[in-house]
Computed example of a mutant assay.
Amino acid sequence: MSTLTSGRILSIDLFRGLTILVMVFVNELAGIADIPAWMKHVAADADTMTFVDLVFPAFLFIVGMSIPFAVQARVNKGDNSWQVFKHGLVRALGLIIIGFYMVNSIGGYDASSMAISIPLWTFCMYISVLLVWCSLPKAWSNALQLSVRAVGIAGLAVLWWLFEGPNDTGMTYQWWGILGLIGWAYLFALIAYLLVGQRPLLIGLVAIGFIGLFPLFAPYEGQSGLLGWFAQENRNHTHTAMVLAGTLMSLLCFDNRYPKRHLNLGLYIVISGILAYLSCQLWPISKIWATPSWALLSIFFCSLLFALFYQLLEVQKYTAITKVFEPAANNPLLIYILPYIIAAGLGSLGLSLRPEVQSSGVPGMLWSVAFALSMMVLVTLLNRLGVRLKL
């Protein structure tokens, strides 16, 4: 029998919607010149972070907060743990595959050897992704739905074949991309949750254990063999810890066995703050390296943000604000890739998405704000047409 709060959790919706909106904003802002340093990602060895470096961790945190409710929904439908895992595995693989294709569309190709331009290749890739993973009308027959999915899968296969890298290498692993990293972290956190269950203390210990894997494998960076591979993928450990930190937050705030929720929130903030401070004495702060100090600082800031949202929505009942962020909250994957689809479509026609006059300074910053808001409007219109993307 589940002990989790039922129904929509508006504070989580707000956190998710705001996070994905800011993510679209900072992604567009990354192409703007002459902006303040605090609006950019910092260098790997800078030993500091900006709000931009907090966006990805916030999304990982939100992914973790959703895990208990997603598992509960599957169990309520009659799934056992193995079926829940298989469903999660399919979702994770979807994110990993999309991330892999996105990374190769950005770099690692030989444009002079490609049969089609890379913008056109990229646009066709996203169309194939939509065909594979978009929501289809329930009135369609199973055969028709499978046909649409098959066309998308065939499209991805053809694009794999058409891709040309340097020295005829084809598509290669460079890194997993943001979506791929989310996919791996989600998968590891889901496995941990299914093994541990709704036990906050154990979830917290497992999260700290994943943090501890970072310094354990760091000395093997650049080496061959299994230990070298673990070191190469060391970022996944701290990313998984951030997902599990979100899972822990959900249990402390929405598991009815723990009614002292303000106390739980307060303890969470204090303990995460202490751990973040201690970690900063041991490791430099680096998003690129995904160091434990960056992860724990991000968890601390996410806990502060969520505590604010919890107070506003769950306690004070200021729920009207959620309407503003509802499109992004309900369609995070679609609104995330929409800018890439539009840019690739225009690029295949030889056009640019951003006007040159708005590519630097204050005009560029204002453009980035307007662009993010326009993506909210566009995803709302697409939803009304029945276009949704959900793994």
Rank of each mutant, 00 (worst) to 15 (best):
His262Ile: 12
Gly107His: 13
Lys287Gln: 14
Val270Gln: 09
Leu389Gly: 04
Val206Ala: 13
Leu213Tyr: 09
Ser6Gly: 06
Gly108Tyr: 04
Ile211Asn: 10
Arg257Pro: 11
Leu297Tyr: 10
Pro36Glu: 00
Met376Asn: 10
Ser105Gly: 15
Trp229Gly: 05
Ala46Met: 07
Asn236Tyr: 11
Leu162Ala: 13
Leu381Arg: 10
Ser2His: 07
Leu389Cys: 06
Ile35Lys: 04
Gly31Val: 00
Ala73Asn: 10
Lys138Gln: 15
Ser2Glu: 11
Met65Tyr: 07
Leu187Ala: 15
Leu351Gly: 04
Phe69Gln: 08
Thr380Val: 02
Thr291Leu: 11
Leu275Thr: 14
Val158Trp: 14
Gly152Tyr: 04
Ala245Thr: 02
Pro215Trp: 09
Thr238Ile: 02
Asp53Thr: 09
Gly345Gln: 05
Arg257Met: 09
Gly364Ser: 05
Gly228Pro: 10
Val63Gln: 07
Pro259Ile: 07
Met23Val: 00
Phe254Ser: 08
Ala231Asp: 10
Gly197Val: 03
Met49Ile: 06
Met102Asp: 05
Pro219Asn: 04
Val206Arg: 03
Val132Gly: 05
Phe300Ser: 10
Val324Pro: 07
Met39Asp: 00
Leu205Cys: 14
Thr5Val: 09
Ile274Arg: 10
Asn104Leu: 09
Leu265Pro: 03
Ile116Asp: 11
Ile191His: 05
Thr122Leu: 01
Ala307Ile: 02
Ser117Tyr: 06
Val270Gly: 08
Gly99Trp: 02
Gly350Tyr: 05
Thr5Glu: 11
Ile335Ser: 07
Ala189Asp: 05
Ile96Lys: 01
Leu179Asp: 07
Leu378Ile: 14
Leu89Val: 12
Gly152Pro: 07
Arg354Cys: 00
Pro200Asn: 06
Tyr268Leu: 15
Gly350Val: 01
Cys134Pro: 02
Val158Tyr: 13
Met23Gly: 00
Phe61Pro: 05
Leu346Lys: 06
Asn234Trp: 03
Asn330Thr: 14
Ser272Tyr: 13
Gly197Asp: 12
Val315Arg: 14
Asn256Asp: 12
Ala139His: 13
Gly204Trp: 05
Ile203Ser: 11
Ala143Ser: 14
Leu385Asn: 09
Leu130Trp: 12
Gly350His: 07
Leu54Thr: 01
Gly108Ser: 08
Thr322Gln: 10
Ile191Trp: 12
Arg388Ile: 03
Ile288Tyr: 11
Tyr220Cys: 04
Ile288His: 12
Asp168Phe: 13
Tyr126Ser: 03
Asn331Leu: 09
Trp176Gln: 09
Lys40Asp: 00
Ala276Leu: 09
Tyr101Gly: 04
Trp121Tyr: 15
Leu304Pro: 03
Phe300Tyr: 12
Cys134Phe: 10
Trp133Gly: 06
Leu202Gly: 04
Phe210Tyr: 15
Ser360Asn: 10
Thr319His: 13
Leu227Thr: 04
Phe214Trp: 15
Trp289Cys: 03
Val24Cys: 00
Lys86Cys: 11
Tyr101Arg: 01
Tyr186Val: 01
Val52Arg: 00
Leu179His: 04
Leu282Phe: 07
Pro363Gln: 07
Ser348Leu: 00
Gly165Glu: 11
Lys317Thr: 11
Gly266Thr: 13
His239Asn: 15
Gly345Lys: 06
Glu356Arg: 02
Lys40Tyr: 00
Phe254Asp: 08
Leu381Gln: 13
Gly88Trp: 07
Ile288Cys: 03
Leu252Val: 03
Phe85Ser: 02
Pro327Gln: 07
Gly99Ser: 02
Lys40Glu: 01
Ile337Glu: 01
Gln281Glu: 14
Ala154Leu: 14
Thr122Lys: 10
